[in-house]
Design a protein around this nucleic acid. Structure first.
Length: 792
DNA sequence: TCTACAACTTAGTACACAAGTA
DNA sequence: TACTTGTGTACTAAGTTGTAGA
C-alpha cells in the first residue's frame, strides 16, 4: 500500500510512536502553548445586577473584558483557602476569607431583550467582594418564607447573582442517613459447606447484600463475586473473629439461598400489604424526610435533590468494571462535610455522632459531601433540578450552545483547513473536532486501569475504527456507561486520509488514534472561538439544532396524538444522534410476539367478515374486486394457528377467573370450584363448541353467518377492525423503533426546553403531553418565558 | 507540564406507581 | 376488580471540565 507524499511527510516527521509503557490507556501527550481567550460572548447578554449584595463581579469564565480566562487572585478557592471548620468539642467559626466575585446575570427575559441588540456590549463592573462583606444576617426561615410572595421565586424575571459566588445565605437541615442494620431472624442463616453459620451483624449485613441480589446478572458475574468475597473476607477480618475467619474461605462453599428466600418473602409481604397499611408507611416516611427536603437559599425555600445519604451495598459498576461487587461502606456523620451559610444554624448530627466538617463555601452549589470508598471520589448532596440555581445553570448551558451558531461556520471552515495542516497536532485537533461536530462524540478523557475500558473521541484507539476506502469509517467502541457505539459512516475524504495516517504503523491495537491531543487541548483551542465553548457544547448545539430542524418539518395538521407522534420522532432523531440507548426489556420479545399475534388475529377477523359478506351477496366479489382481494391472504396453517390462540386465550381466561374465585372461596372456607363444577363446565363446553365450529370452518373455508347479520353491519365491523389494525401496527412500529432508543436523556439534557415549549404553543399541544411533571418543574423558566415563535 | 482532584452534568437502571385491559 | 403493561422518578454511576499544585 502506498501513501501520498503528504502522508509520508507527516507520518515520518510528526507521527508519534507507541506509548512508552506499551499500555493502551496511559500515554504522554504533547500540549501546545496556551492561547489567550477572546471574548466572543456578546456582553449585551449579561445584565447588570441590581442590588449591592447581588452585584459582585465574576473574575473567571465569561469574563466581560475579553481578558484571559486563566484564574488570578480571585480564582476558585482551593481547599486551603476555602472556609472550613473542623467540628471539635467546641466548634468555633474563624473568619477565614473567601474570595467572592460575581457578575451580573443572564436571564431568559433579559436575554430576549438583549438578543435584539445582539451587538451591543456592556462592561461588567469588577468589584471584588469579600465573603465577610456578604450579608449573612439571614432572617429565620419561616420569617423569610412568609415575606415571600405567594408565587415561588422566578429567577428568570429577576436580576440575579452569577459567577463565582453562588449564594449569600444557605440554611438546611443536613442529610438523612439510612436506617441502621437490623439483624435477620435467628433462623435465617448463611450456609457454609452445608452448615449454618452464625454471623456478627456487620458481616451478616454484607452477606445479605449479596444474597438479596442472588438472581441478578450482577451476582452471576465472576468479577462481582470475586470483589464481593474479597471485601467480605476483609470485613470478617475486621471483626477479629478468628474462628469465622478460619471458616469462610471459599465463595463456592457459601449457600445464600436461605437468605435469598427470606428477602423474597419480605418483598412479597410488602407487596401484599393493604392499601391503608401502605399509605401509613408512606406517610411515616414522608414525615421523616420532610425536614431534609427543603433548604433556604438566600432566604428563599428551594428543594434539595438527593438529601438521602447513599446506603451501604455492593457497587454495581456498569460494563466490565474491575471494581464491580466491591463493598460500598456505610457513611457516618463523621464522614460528612456540611456546607452552610456562615450564620446558619448547624443541624444536629444523629445522636452520638459529630459531623466530619462544616464549611461555609459560597462558591459551590452543594449542601453536603462525603468521600466514597470505591473510587475515592466525592459524592455531593445538591439542589433539586427544579431549584433556581440549577435552572440558571441549565439556562446558561443552552445559551452557550445557542451562541455556537454564530461561530460554528468559522470553526468548521478552520478545521476543514487544518485537516491538511503540516503539524500533526493541528491535524489531529481538526480531525477530532470534525468527529465531535459531525457525530456528536464525547470528548473522551483518559481513564484509569481501575475503571471500565470505555472511550470517547480523544481516547479512541487503533482498534476502534475500521477504514473502508474510499471514505467509509466504521466506529465500534464502548462509550459512556459501556454503551456500544457502532456506526458505519461516510466522512470527508481528508478526514479519511488523516485517520489512515493516525493508524499507520508502528501503531497497532492498543495505541491511541489521537496521540498528540487530549480534551484539555481541544477545549483550549475551542475557547479561542468562543468563551465557554468546549467539546460538550457541540453535543448540546447539534442536538438542539437537529431538533429545531426536525420540528420545522412538522406541519400543523392532525390531532394532538398525531402531533405528539411527530414530536417524538424528532426527539428520536436527536436520541439516535447522541447514541442514547436503553436495554431492551426482558419481556420485549414476548410483547412484540403478542402484538404480532394480535395483528394476525385482526387480519383473520377482517377476512372472516369479508367471507361472510360474500356468503350473503356472492356477486359483490366481482363488483368490488379490490375490497375482496385479501380474502385468500391467510394460509390454512396461519388460520389454524390463530384458532388455537383464540381458543387457548378463552380457556385461560375461564381458568384464571376460577383460580381467583377459589382464592375467595378458600378464605371464606367454602368448597372450591373445579373444571367439573357446573358453572365452569358450561363455559368450557362453549369453548369446545367454538373449537368445533372453527374446525369446520377451516375445512369448508366458509364461516357461519348469523341470521341477524347484514352486509352493512359487517362492513361497519370491518371498518372498526381496520382502525384497530392501523393502531396496532403503529404500536408495533413504535415498540420496535423505541425498544433500544432512550428519548428521555436528550429531552432532559440536550434539547433546549424552549423548543419543546415553542412546539407546544405553536402546535396547540398541551405541555403536559410533552414534559412530565418533573420536567415541567425543571424547565419552568422555559415554559414561562418562551413564545410560539422562539427559535434555537 | 502533568496529575490529581473538585465540582459539576449526563446517563442508564431499578422500582414504584399509574394507566390500560380483560 | 385483578392483572398486565407502561411511565415516571429516584438513584447513583460515569462522564466532562477547570484548577491547584507538585
Amino acid at each position: 500500500m502506498s501513501s501520498s507524499s503528504e502522508e509520508d511527510n507527516i507520518a515520518l516527521s510528526k507521527r508519534s510512536h507507541k506509548s512508552k509503557n506499551g499500555s493502551s490507556t496511559k500515554r504522554k501527550k504533547l500540549h501546545p502553548p496556551s492561547s489567550e481567550d477572546e471574548d466572543d460572548l456578546p456582553l449585551s447578554k449579561r445584565a447588570e445586577t441590581a442590588t449591592p449584595s447581588a452585584s459582585p463581579v465574576k473574575k473567571r469564565k465569561l469574563d466581560s473584558n475579553g481578558s484571559s480566562s486563566k484564574s488570578n487572585g480571585t480564582s476558585k478557592s482551593s481547599s486551603s483557602t476555602k472556609k472550613r471548620i473542623k467540628v471539635e468539642s467546641n466548634p468555633s467559626t474563624p473568619k477565614n476569607s473567601v474570595k467572592k466575585s460575581s457578575s451580573s446575570t443572564v436571564t431568559p427575559n433579559n436575554v430576549t431583550k438583549s438578543a435584539k441588540k445582539e451587538k451591543e456590549t456592556k462592561k461588567d463592573s469588577k468589584t471584588k467582594v469579600k465573603a465577610e462583606e456578604v450579608k449573612e444576617d439571614s432572617p429565620s426561615q419561616s420569617q423569610q418564607a412568609e415575606d415571600e410572595d405567594d408565587d415561588s421565586y422566578k429567577w428568570w424575571e429577576a436580576e440575579d447573582l452569577d459567577g463565582e459566588v453562588k449564594w449569600d445565605t444557605l440554611e438546611h437541615n443536613g442529610v438523612l442517613f439510612p436506617p441502621e442494620y437490623e439483624p435477620l431472624p435467628s433462623h435465617i442463616k448463611l450456609f457454609y459447606d452445608g452448615k449454618p453459620i452464625d454471623l456478627p451483624p456487620v458481616v451478616e449485613e454484607v452477606v445479605g447484600f449479596y444474597a438479596a441480589m442472588l438472581e441478578t446478572d450482577h451476582a452471576k458475574n465472576p468479577v462481582f463475586q470475586n470483589n464481593f468475597f474479597e471485601d467480605l473476607v476483609q470485613i470478617i477480618k475486621e471483626t477479629k473473629n478468628e474462628q469465622l475467619r478460619a471458616t469462610i474461605k471459599d465463595f463456592n462453599k457459601c449457600d445464600f439461598s436461605k437468605m435469598y428466600t427470606y428477602f423474597e418473602q419480605l418483598r412479597e409481604e410488602k407487596k401484599s400489604l393493604s392499601k391503608d397499611e401502605k399509605k401509613r408507611i408512606k406517610e411515616e416516611k414522608e414525615k421523616l424526610e420532610e425536614p431534609f427536603k427543603t433548604c433556604y437559599l438566600n432566604g428563599r425555600p428551594e428543594m434539595v435533590g438527593n438529601f438521602r445519604v447513599e446506603p451501604p451495598g455492593l457497587f454495581r459498576g456498569r460494563g466490565a468494571h474491575p471494581k464491580t461487587g466491591k463493598l460500598k461502606r456505610r457513611v457516618f456523620p463523621e464522614n460528612v462535610t456540611l456546607n452552610l451559610g456562615k450564620n446558619a444554624k448547624i443541624p444536629e448530627p444523629p445522636a452520638g455522632h459529630e459531623w466530619g466538617e462544616i464549611r461555609h463555601d459560597n462558591t459551590v452549589a452543594w449542601l453536603a459531601m462525603w468521600k466514597e470508598n470505591i473510587a475515592d471520589s466525592l459524592k455531593y448532596v445538591r439542589f433539586a433540578a427544579s431549584s433556581s440555581i440549577k435552572g440558571q445553570s441549565d439556562f446558561k448551558k443552552f445559551e452557550t450552545a445557542r451562541q455556537l451558531k454564530h461561530h460554528v461556520e468559522s470553526i468548521r471552515k478552520d478545521y476543514t483547513k487544518n485537516l491538511k495542516s503540516e503539524l500533526m497536532q493541528d491535524r489531529q485537533l481538526a480531525s477530532a473536532t470534525y468527529l465531535i461536530d459531525k457525530f456528536a462524540l464525547r470528548a473522551g478523557g483518559e481513564k484509569g486501569d481501575d475503571e471500565a475500558d470505555t472511550v470517547g473521541c480523544c481516547s479512541l484507539r487503533f482498534e476502534h475504527i475500521t477504514l473502508k476506502p474510499p471514505n467509509i469509517v466504521v466506529f465500534d467502541f464502548l462509550g459512556k456507561d459501556s454503551i456500544r457505539y457502532y456506526q458505519e459512516v461516510e466522512v470527508d475524504k481528508q478526514v479519511f486520509k488523516n485517520l489512515r495516517i493516525f493508524k499507520k504503523s508502528p501503531k497497532g491495537p492498543g495505541d491511541d488514534l489521537f496521540d498528540r491531543i487530549n480534551p484539555s487541548l481541544l477545549n483550549k483551542q475551542l475557547q479561542n472561538y468562543m468563551k465557554g465553548l468546549t467539546a460538550k457544547v457541540f453535543r448540546t448545539y447539534n442536538a438542539s439544532k437537529t431538533m429545531q430542524d426536525q420540528l420545522d418539518l412538522i406541519t400543523n395538521e392532525g390531532t394532538v396524538a398525531e402531533k405528539i407522534v411527530k414530536f417524538n420522532a424528532a426527539n428520536r432523531t436527536v436520541a439516535i444522534l447522541c447514541n442514547h440507548q436503553r436495554t431492551v426489556s426482558k419481556s420485549h420479545g414476548s410483547v412484540v410476539q403478542k402484538i404480532n399475534d394480535k395483528l394476525k388475529e385482526l387480519l383473520w377477523q377482517k377476512i372472516r367478515l369479508k367471507k361472510m359478506i360474500l356468503q350473503i351477496e356472492p356477486n359483490l366479489k366481482k363488483k368490488d374486486k379490490a375490497y375482496f382481494e385479501e380474502i385468500n391472504d391467510l394460509i390454512k396453517e396461519d388460520e389454524q394457528y390463530i384458532h388455537e390462540i383464540v381458543i387457548q386465550r378463552q380457556r385461560e381466561q375461564v381458568l384464571k377467573k376460577m383460580a381467583r374465585d377459589n382464592e375467595k372461596l378458600k378464605a371464606e372456607k367454602e368448597p372450591l370450584l373445579t373444571e367439573k363444577s357446573e358453572s365452569i363446565k358450561e363455559k368450557l363446553d362453549k369453548i369446545k363448541e367454538l373449537e368445533k365450529e372453527y374446525k369446520a370452518e377451516l375445512k369448508s373455508g366458509k364461516p357461519e353467518v348469523k341470521k341477524q347479520l347484514t352486509v352493512e353491519k359487517l362492513k361497519q365491523q370491518i371498518e372498526t377492525i381496520e382502525t384497530r389494525i392501523v393502531n396496532t401496527s403503529l404500536q408495533l412500529k413504535d415498540k420496535e423503533d423505541n425498544s433500544e432508543v432512550s428519548l428521555g436523556t436528550s429531552k432532559m439534557n440536550y434539547i433546549d426546553p424552549r423548543l419543546t415549549v415553542m412546539f407546544s404553543k405553536k402546535y396547540d399541544v398541551p405541555i403536559e403531553k410533552l414534559f412530565t411533571k418533573t420536567l415541567r418543574e425543571k424547565f419552568t423558566w422555559a415554559i414561562e418565558s418562551t413564545d410560539k415563535d422562539w427559535r434555537f
